[in-house]
């Protein structure tokens, strides 16, 4: 899944001819220890993940809890160290970045947390919250800091600015809190925004407003966005590409419309089947849900990790060898033996 995936090239891209983020053969494993010292195996949270994210492009990562999407995100943010493989951000490999450089690396990525109230320090007012990243990153001029804070608040539409600045997080509504979080993520003018379920804690009526704001910021700043969610219904309005993760691996990668309208992997089918649109007829049907639960990542199933739950499981193939990434149509990759012509009999 290493093809570059957009045709549109920005000036920056033309400069170095590379994607903004290149995830190469990324493995993030956490070591388990017995009695605190002797080795007792690994939790294989992210296993062999490859993708590129270009300048100004939005990509959605969909998966259930425990599928490794948070580990992937934390690695991109520079908070986890890859066990194997690398994240190359703006030409800089993460594994080679240390100390002061690592801090600079992190300042180029904005992070939007899931729970805005939990993400904002309760004892700081909005001005202080937004000033903090600027101070840490060495913007010494007070006027300059003030100017940037006002500009970003204008952009996230938290107005009137003079009224918002002295407020503490508990004095703001959920939607406003999330705007402060977005403003804080944007204040260092990052090239990449990582949004971890940015709207899941918000009310339905506010949700759309925040999604639109994110899209507008993405367009005006030519931002790359990694949008992480478990809710398929919000992704259509936001990103061009989408990938689905299951048990630490990417199982399907496609253009948004291709995936939503013509999904290939049985797991993607199941996710789509389980998501409902408001319709009174929903109450009359029993939905087909794969039995069981996601596997333990300490001892993942052999072969395809979805095979114990898969309705189209083929004994002797799926449980023996992990499926390769098969390109079913241009830029639509799926890791499933169903789409292999000789059904894996080649091995």
């Amino acid at each position: 899944m290493t093809d570059t995936i957009t045709e549109t090239s920005t000036a920056e891209q033309a400069k170095n001819g590379q994607a903004l983020v290149q995830i190469k053969d990324l493995h993030v494993w956490y070591e388990l220890k017995k009695f605190g010292f002797s080795h007792a195996g690994y939790v294989r949270a992210v296993d062999n993940v490859n993708f590129d994210l270009n300048y100004g492009e939005a990509i959605a990562c969909v998966g259930e809890s425990g599928c490794g999407k948070s580990s992937l995100m934390k690695t991109i943010l520079g908070l986890n160290i890859p066990t194997k493989g690398d994240v190359i951000f703006d030409g800089e490999p993460l594994t080679q970045t240390k100390g002061e450089n690592l801090r600079r690396y992190r300042s180029k990525i904005g992070y939007i947390q899931q729970d805005p109230f939990g993400a904002l320090p309760p004892f700081m007012n909005v001005e202080r919250i937004l000033e903090e990243p600027l101070i840490i990153n060495g913007v010494k001029d007070k006027e300059e800091r003030r100017r940037r804070i006002e500009k970003i608040l204008e952009e996230v539409k938290l107005t009137p600015i003079a009224e918002v600045l002295p407020k503490f997080p508990h004095m703001l509504s959920g939607g406003q809190q999330q705007r402060v979080v977005i403003a804080r993520a944007m204040i260092m003018e990052p090239k990449l925004l990582v949004a971890d379920e940015p709207v899941s804690m918000l009310d339905a009526s506010v949700r759309v407003e925040v999604l639109r704001l994110l899209r507008k910021l993405q367009e005006t700043h030519n931002l790359a966005v990694l949008y992480i969610t478990h809710d398929l219904s919000t992704v259509r309005y936001f990103s061009e590409y989408i990938f689905v993760m299951y048990a630490g691996e990417i199982v399907e990668f496609a253009r948004m419309d291709d995936l939503l309208d013509d999904s290939k992997h049985p797991y993607t089918h199941a996710l789509l089947e389980a998501s409902s649109d408001p319709n009174a007829d929903n109450a009359l049907v029993q939905r087909e849900i794969p039995k069981g639960e996601p596997p333990s990542l300490v001892n993942p199933p052999t072969g395809c990790r979805f095979h114990p739950r898969c309705p189209q499981f083929m004994p002797g193939i799926c449980d023996v060898k992990a499926p390769p990434n098969i390109e079913v149509s241009p830029k639509h990759l799926v890791a499933c033996w169903l789409y292999d012509e000789n059904r894996g009999h080649a091995f």
Partner: peptide, 30 residues
């Protein structure tokens, strides 16, 4: 049945319009 088909109160209307749809391409409103 009638509610999801045709909500009456302007608030119900707005609430229904704010739901992102998976299978339709209507833009949600806030």
């Amino acid at each position: 049945h009638r509610f999801f088909h045709q909500p009456l109160h302007p608030y119900s209307h707005a609430l229904m319009a704010s739901v992102p749809r998976l299978r339709e391409t209507i833009e949600p409103e806030f």
